[in-house]
């Protein structure tokens, strides 16, 4: 039987590649919603030695709601408000971005092999996916000009960090550390609200961070 977790991880990897190759912002937000849901169910699918506690199930449900509904919803609102559809003239082109994404997957497989972690079976792919998502998020932040795409890049990076956390930590002890990663979503929310409320558009005619270049040395 194919493990369910491998299928979910494949979906995450595909969503990373799709987001690197897509130029329509609406599609990008939809991809992020899918990725958010996939990322937040991953910890449930990992086989633990210990039982999953009642509180944790509620927590994962909240995670799905935040990552799959709340943040994408906010992003949609922001998109409507600023009325732009496409990311034009990215700093790195779409085909080059896709190729970089593939290179990142290879690189993270190599990194995972090198780490020689004594992980439970089946988690190697998880760590590979996590590192790829983290790196691709970074790349998206640096290679796009629109503020909203940079926020999406940050969101992706944060998904990667959450995955790394769930791949690496054992649940044998009662440390809630990974769970606090959800607070990073708060920062994302604030950034989006910043775009909506203070409206970079009003000040600059367009949500384009190239206009944010007057402060420099």
């Amino acid at each position: 039987m194919i493990h369910l977790i491998d299928a979910v991880l494949a979906i995450i990897l595909l969503s990373v590649l799709l987001s690197l190759g897509s130029n329509r912002l609406k599609a990008l937000v939809e991809i992020m919603a899918l990725q958010g849901i996939a990322v937040s169910v991953v910890p449930l699918l990992i086989e633990y030695h210990a039982e999953i506690r009642q509180g944790e199930i509620i927590f994962f449900q909240i995670m799905v709601l935040i990552k799959g509904a709340l943040i994408p919803g906010l992003l949609f609102m922001a998109l409507k408000k600023i009325a732009i559809k496409r990311e034009v003239e990215p700093i790195v082109g779409y085909h080059a971005s896709l190729l970089t994404g593939l290179a990142m997957i290879l690189l993270s497989i190599a990194v995972t092999e090198r780490l020689h972690l004594t992980m439970p079976a089946g988690r190697e792919l998880l760590l590979t996916t996590a590192i790829t998502t983290l790196a691709a998020g970074f790349f998206l932040m640096m290679s796009r000009r629109k503020a909203i795409t940079q926020v999406i890049g940050y969101l992706m990076m944060e998904n990667g960090i959450y995955l790394i956390g769930s791949a690496l930590t054992k649940r044998s002890h009662t440390l809630y550390v990974v769970e606090f990663g959800v607070l990073l979503d708060l920062l994302v929310g604030v950034m989006i609200m910043g775009i909506i409320l203070h409206n970079i558009k009003d000040a600059f005619d367009d949500v384009d961070t190239t206009h944010l270049g007057s402060l420099k040395d």
């Binding site: 550390v177 990073l184 920062l187 604030v190 944010l212 007057s214 402060l215």
Partner: peptide, 25 residues
């Protein structure tokens, strides 16, 4: 200019904060 400074502050410091969380992991 204040908007630009705030945007940079929030974005760059958020990335930093995210990496610090990774350090805690």
């Amino acid at each position: 200019e204040a908007l630009e400074a705030t945007w940079k502050y929030v974005l760059i410091c958020s990335v930093g904060i995210a990496l610090a969380l990774l350090g805690c992991f």
